[in-house]
Design a binder for these strands. Sequence first.
DNA 1: TATTGTTATACTCTATAACTATA
DNA 2: TATAGTTATAGAGTATAACAATA
Lengths: 153, 153
Amino acid sequence: MNPSPEESARELLEVIPVVMRDIRSQMRSRRSPDLTVPQFRALGFVDRNRGSSLSDVAYHMGLTLPSTSKLVDGLISRGLMAREEHPDDRRRLKLAVTRRGLSTLETSRRATLAYLSAKLGNASGEQRELIVGAMGALRSIFSATAYREQGVK
Amino acid sequence: MNPSPEESARELLEVIPVVMRDIRSQMRSRRSPDLTVPQFRALGFVDRNRGSSLSDVAYHMGLTLPSTSKLVDGLISRGLMAREEHPDDRRRLKLAVTRRGLSTLETSRRATLAYLSAKLGNASGEQRELIVGAMGALRSIFSATAYREQGVK
DNA sequence: TATTGTTATACTCTATAACTATA
DNA sequence: TATAGTTATAGAGTATAACAATA
């Protein structure tokens, strides 16, 4: 018998924050102190989508433009990302990860994956299969989210 | 063939933040603006573990004592939680959820579960089964985390 | 001296409101 | 007028360092 939506929701609400906190703690720890989770995600997105605008990043991350602007600001001021001019539309940004940003991203990714892999290595193969399957399902359920209208008065 | 720890880690790192952001956004939205995710979790923990000390909460949440102190402070100043004196050890707190805190917790929980249930209702029963199974596995993998030594010089 | 918690300080994350520049 | 982005402001989350009170 399959679990109800309610039961599944309860499980998600209990477990997701716990896993998330663990990931966040790891990223803040000595081993990979360079990027926070949102910084990591933004950098990774722009790396995979070179030339993205700020709005693209905001949409992907499910953040407002001001939040995204500030987030990106921090990355730019640290030399991890670069702002270029868009040829056609001068309002628009073209974002790109710098060489240094890429190296930081890789270091952070390696450290975090190593940390998580060690934990997941203690689980059984069946458990990992469950997890990977569930992540696929969750991705399709949750990724079409994001973007709430900007409150233009 | 079962997925490797590395592959599983990669999936986790991609999907968990997306789901988490969605939950956080929902909690911040008009429908349940009363509690943030950490507030919700702290209140829920103390509700299930009446008389917990601050350290108990910190341990459960994987936070430092100062962070937890501030978090609990906010709940107390809003009348959602109460600090009582411990009979045996006057350094220790005994925390309890107030009636108003309980009602806020219930409202928030209902709204969030309804939101998540609606999303999960669009998934198939098999997908929900995967998800519930994976949450169980993740719980056992990640819940023994928490607590880094306090930096007492 | 060790433990429990608080206060001081600082940064990041995130939002809304108001604004600028460009289209 | 509509769109892309920034700036101003504010509150929550989180940490480390330093402290106070109690054991």
